[in-house]
Amino acid sequence: MSGTDTALSMSEIVVHRSGQRVLSFESFDLARGESVAIIGANGSGKSSFLLAASLLIPSTEGEIFYFGTKISRSNRREFRRLSSISFQDPVLLDRTVIDNLKIAMDLRNFEKTEVHSEAYSWLERLGVERLALKKPHELSGGERQRVSLARAFALQPAILMLDEPFTAIDPVDKRSISRDLHDLINENELSSIVVTHDISEAVVLASKIVVLIDGFIHQDGTMKDVLNRPKSVNVAKLIGHTVLGNDDARESLRISVPSSSSHELISFPTSAISLRANPKGRGQITRYESAVGGIVAIVRLAGVEIPSDISAHQVMSLDFAVGQYVDVIFDQSKLVHLSN
C-alpha cells in the first residue's frame, strides 16, 4: 500500500447490471480510517455501490483506486483481498463456525499455525466463541451476523464493507452488535463503508454520509451537514425530515416564509418540533408512528399533520395520549428552505 491518505477513490463510475444502469456518479473518496455511510431507499443502487467498491462487480466506466493504485483486470483479485464484506443476509458456508473463519483466512494466506487461535480470538471478541462448532442452520439471525462480522474482521481488512448489517436481526441484538461494531471499527482504525437505509445506523457507524437516489449521489458531506441541511426534497425525506409547502408552513407553524421565495418548500427534522401539554393548545395528537429515530407523535395543526419527537416519558403520560391537545413549539433554527 502506498502512502496516500485515500483508501479508496472512485471516479466517473457507471455500473450496469442485467442491462440496466444502476449506478452513475462523478466521484467518491474514502480516507484512511474514515467511516462513510451510504444511505438510500430500496433499489437506489446502494448494494451495487458496495459490490463495485469491493471489486466484486466491474464498473462499465470509470476508475477505481485502492491506496493510490489503479485497479485493472490484472490486479483486481489482489486488491479484492484488501477488503472484507459482510452482506445483509449473512452468507456462511455450510461448515462449522470456526471452519468458516479458518477457510476464509486460508484463502487469504494467513500463517497456518496461527489461523486457529486467531479465528477463535475473533469469535471471542464478537462473543460467539461458544458457537465455534455449530453449523450455520443452528444459529439465530444475530449469531449469524456476529459470525459473519468475526470473519470479516479476522481477515484484517484495510477496508471494511458492511451491507445493511442490522436488517436481519432483532432490536436487542442490533443494539449490542452496533456497539461492538462501532468499537471494533474505531479500535482497528479501519476505513469502512456501511450501506444502510436506516439513518440511525448511519449515525452510529459513520462520520460522513453519502445519499444515493436512483443510482446518483445526490448529496454527501459530514453527518451534521447532511442531516441539518438537505439539498433536495428527496434527500430531506430520506433522512427523516418533514417536508411542507410554504403555505402549509405559514398556516400550521405560523412561521414567516417569503411568499415570492424561489424556495417553495421547507423541511425540518422531527427534533425541530416539541410538544407541551395544554388542553387549549392548537395541536391535537392523532396517532403515534415508528420513525427513523424511534417513536414520533403525529400532531394535527391547522389541518396539517406534523410528526414530532416525543420522549418515552411523554408517551407514558396521559397528557400526550392520542386525542389530547398540545402546544406545538417550533425551533426555527432547524428550518431548511428547499426548491421543489
Binding site: L56, R77, R80, F87, D89, V91, L93, I103, L107
Partner: peptide, 26 residues
Amino acid sequence: LPESLFLQIRSLGAGRKDTLFLLAYE
C-alpha cells in the same frame, strides 16, 4: 445457490479452483 454466496466466496479472495470446490461442497 444464492448469488451472494458466490460473491462472498470471491470476496474472500478465492481463485477459480477454490471457488469451484467451495461451491461444489455447498
